[in-house]
């Protein structure tokens, strides 16, 4: 729904007075709801609800052969699906651009080996490796997709179980992989470096985090800051608009500090989740 000028002015004045339309301050997040292990056919999954934004992420694992230029590394791919349930704008090919933007952003945030060590996914040098398919389904769009998606992806990867390999038989070009029979013996991924993205929106003279759909329409420009282990792994601008170098640095600083707080609380929450819960979404 496009806003009229009066509504935009209302949002703008709210941000100016550090009292946004839903009562938050400029650096506050909306309440989040996180569940892991929701999809039984996936190797790892998570569902995040950030106020009106709803995201479901599932990780599938397959055996593949590594890229010839990176024989020691596994593969990681992101697919974003914009369901037309989320908003009517996504009908047909409407969500395609957003989906490409989101998956590109995730791919560049995870590109560095500091973010996720793909070498751990190698089974046999140059021959076999694990390939992780991270499928992201947008169930509802209520603003701030980048943040929600990155949190859900990190939680899904945290939840992911990679099967253990018992033995590998090599016979010429034939490779036989024997996976461990015990379904409970699997390895977990090290996700301490998995980046979290924070969208910093510039509205009027101030920067805010976690914009809702109305605030996103009022922003003159937004920067997505992906932070992993105290370093910036990706920064990119979304939407049009330009920044003064000074403003850009302020945005980066704000995004960086917010991301670190977010990281701490996410890790705490993930630690609290008990395995095999039988209540929740899709249960």
């Amino acid at each position: 729904m496009p806003l009229c000028d009066a509504e935009k002015t209302f949002v703008l004045h709210g941000v100016d007075a550090n009292m946004r339309i839903d009562g938050r301050e400029r650096e506050d997040y909306r309440p989040m709801e996180l569940e892991t292990d929701v999809v039984s056919h996936a190797f790892g999954s998570a569902r995040l609800r950030l106020a009106n934004t709803d995201v479901l992420v599932a990780v599938k694992i397959e055996v593949d052969s590594p890229f010839p230029e990176k024989p020691f590394e596994g593969k990681l791919e992101f697919f974003v699906d914009c369901s037309a349930n989320a908003t009517p704008d996504f009908e047909g090919r409407g969500g395609e651009n957003l989906a490409v933007e989101l998956s590109n952003c995730l791919a560049s945030a995870y590109r560095s080996n500091e973010a996720l060590d793909l070498k751990k996914l190698c089974i046999m040098k140059g021959r076999k490796c694990w390939k992780l398919y991270v499928d992201i389904l947008l169930l509802e769009v209520g603003g701030n997709l980048f943040d929600a998606v990155s949190i859900a992806v990190k939680s899904a990867l945290y939840n992911t179980q990679i099967p253990k390999i018992k033995s590998i038989h090599v016979d010429g070009s034939q490779i036989d992989i024997q996976v461990c029979d015990d379904i409970f013996s699997c390895t977990r991924l090290d996700i301490s470096g998995a980046p979290l993205m924070v969208t910093v929106c510039k509205i009027g003279e101030h920067c805010i985090v976690d914009p809702n759909a109305a605030e996103e329409q009022c922003s003159v420009g937004a920067v997505v800051v992906a932070v992993s282990r105290g370093c910036l792994s990706t920064v990119l601008q979304t939407g049009t608009g330009s920044f003064h170098p000074k403003t850009l640095k302020e945005c980066l600083k704000l995004g960086f500090s917010v991301a670190q707080n977010l990281e701490d609380s996410l890790m705490e929450t993930l630690g609290e989740i008990k395995p095999n819960q039988d209540v929740g979404f899709l249960k």
């Binding site: 105290g230 910036l232 990119l236 003064h244 170098p245």
Partner: peptide
């Protein structure tokens, strides 16, 4: 003095 687009990849401190 406007930055119309900024793009970074990798792993860099602030």
């Amino acid at each position: 003095d406007q930055i119309s687009h900024f793009h970074q990849v990798g792993n860099l401190p602030l």
